[in-house]
Design a protein around this nucleic acid. Structure first.
Lengths: 343, 343
DNA sequence: AGAATTACTGAGAACGATTGCAGGAGCGTA
DNA sequence: TACGCTCCTGCAATCGTTCTCAGTAATTCT
């Protein structure tokens, strides 16, 4: 019932465990056929736990993300997986955007993986760097922590993306531009807001605090934030949404309130939608290669692991993924919304 | 640099490793404060590998799915995770719809997890049941293998869903009804086709083989299949799409060819879209609770693990998730497509 | 034929934890 | 003081591998 061990195989063939072990690692052994048979007959599988323990290597890496339901992170995972090659098993773990879970997961992963690609929940979280004190290679993707300069990272050019979006709207004549951004204690939340505010400043448009809404990267958050903006006595004429899910939520709110795009309001998403052609009008968006960003993170991790194995010094590598603006139909010059009726 | 072991902790405090181990497992020990300090100072983390090896338990379960980019599987994973509770770490592994990968993954997972939730790639795949010979609890979700009656499973009522869709179209007056289904060697592919054909038969509508298109559950497959249907000399007046991604692909094809829904063609999706309100007209769809299906699978797995631990006999449990039809705007009585122009 | 080289083999010590067992310290009771 | 009881402790075996080391058989060289 319970699984056979290498000893069982060795006994059945009449060789030592060392020989079976050697056979398993690809060395030449005299009774290779007999061993192969015995393995099949006994349904033998090497115990991963025992292997890890002895060798210290796991041939496994993990990707820890805040929300696996977000297609962005699913794509990051796919990209990373594709870049991992056949030698590594890639595990995906969802921290569910709960800080204690993230910390617990990192602890549990320790000793079971050779490295981790992490999208940390908060920039002020010391868990990851604390974690890496144990010598576990770690690469930040999309988000970093405060001391991240000491670690590898693969970020997107958040500031540039937000700048492109803001400039695009300003060029169209908008001045009442709002942004629905992610939590300011996350990297993309903070930097996209920064790109927005710095561009406004440079263009000499006064920042209206009520136009800068800190939300939570969820569809519900995007919906609620857009509703809030629409209820403003002087609603914005254009809105930048800070990630794909919030774009969807915001679009849902607009549709529900029957606000026309782009006639009544312009909207730009940071991150393109997955299926951009199906909705009408198409969402003008800041594009970046999701899959490639994941792949880049995996390459960085494998390089880090290799460096560690070779005891080579390797300074922290910081990769930056470029963005560009894709114009579709969701932006137009402002005409202003009708004045808000009471009730 | 490298991580401290339980021996280091024990030495620093001046107790035996057994005492430290007991402290870690929650027993009363005299020098608990000293041990706690030493653990912090040394950054000690128990080695998961060593623990596994000795105890045989891993406090970990895995979910193996064909395509993590498919929101359906992401939702299954979320649901399963939510049902797992804090005692288990949940790993997500992507088989990428490659059979050899699936087999390899199951092998690698052996010894690192207490159980697996699997959505197998093919019904004729013996890997999983072979795998379970090792005594590893396994629960099939959404898909099964040929000998699956011996294992737990959580399926959706595929036949009923396809029947509801087909009946709905027939009731509207359609007779030229096509289906774009998944691979017939997968459970949902086969059973959804079966629900479609059996309903046609019962309603005495002759099955047109060219209206039954076997595709591959991808957006690209849905797109290509729809294009193929539209090129038919006598195109169907209604189409059932066999999963969410193929629905999207099919809709993209229709949009590109400027075929109006539902005036020119009616369409029903098996599985609702993630953001159903944003596209126009809304897609009439067969709905099932994704998240709940994942949760059910996890409950089944935990029950199986518990039964195994208690050496209790537990007959295979087969759960069936119900479906219903959600009417939106994508279906109408047939009017026929304009005759196909050459070129 | 004898020496040197090659190619494989088995014994046994790790890896880092858990756990059964026997024993010792501390306490209460007679 | 002597005894028993409880509570904690350390020793050592163990989990299933890998890997070093020394040794043996087979082969080649002189």
């Amino acid at each position: 019932m319970s699984s056979a061990t290498i000893t069982d195989v060795a006994q059945r063939v009449g060789v030592s465990v060392a020989t079976v072990s050697r056979y398993l690692s690809g060395f030449n052994v005299r009774q290779r056929d007999e061993i192969e048979n015995a393995i099949h007959e006994l349904n033998y599988r090497p115990s991963a736990a025992a292997r890890n323990l002895k060798s210290g290597r796991t041939a496994t890496v993990a990707i820890v993300v805040p929300d696996i339901s977000n297609p962005f992170f699913a794509a990051i995972a796919s990209g990373a997986e594709a870049a991992a090659g056949p030698d590594y098993m890639v595990l995906l773990v969802n921290s569910g955007a709960v800080r204690e879970r993230e910390e617990k997961i990192l602890g549990q992963l320790f000793g079971r993986v050779d490295g981790v690609i992490l999208s940390p929940l908060q920039e002020d979280n010391e868990g990851p760097s604390f974690f890496s004190k144990y010598g576990l290679p770690i690469v930040f993707v999309d988000r970093i922590t405060a001391d991240a300069d000491k670690f590898d990272s693969v970020l997107v050019d958040n500031v540039k993306g937000a700048r492109l979006a803001t400039e695009h709207l300003i060029a169209l004549g908008h001045e009442k531009i709002a942004i629905i951004t992610g939590p300011l204690h996350t990297t993309p939340g903070r930097l996209r807001a920064e790109g927005y505010t710095s561009t406004l400043k440079r263009e000499k448009i006064a920042l209206q605090k009520r136009y800068l809404i800190e939300s939570d990267f969820t569809r519900e958050g995007g919906y609620a934030s857009m509703v809030k903006l629409l209820e403003d006595p002087i609603p914005p004429t254009a809105v930048i949404t800070g990630n794909n899910l919030m774009s969807i939520g915001a679009l849902e709110a607009l549709k529900e309130k029957q606000i026309r795009i782009p006639e009544d309001i312009s909207i730009i998403g940071f991150d393109d939608l997955e299926f951009p052609t199906l909705i009408e009008p198409g969402l003008t968006a800041i594009f970046r290669p999701w899959h490639e960003q994941g792949a880049e993170a995996m390459r960085a991790l494998l390089a880090r692991i290799a460096a560690q194995a070779a005891h080579t010094e390797l300074s922290p590598q910081h990769h930056m993924v470029d963005v560009h603006l894709i114009e579709r139909g969701s932006c137009a010059p402002p005409k202003g919304l009708p004045a808000r009726s009471k009730g």
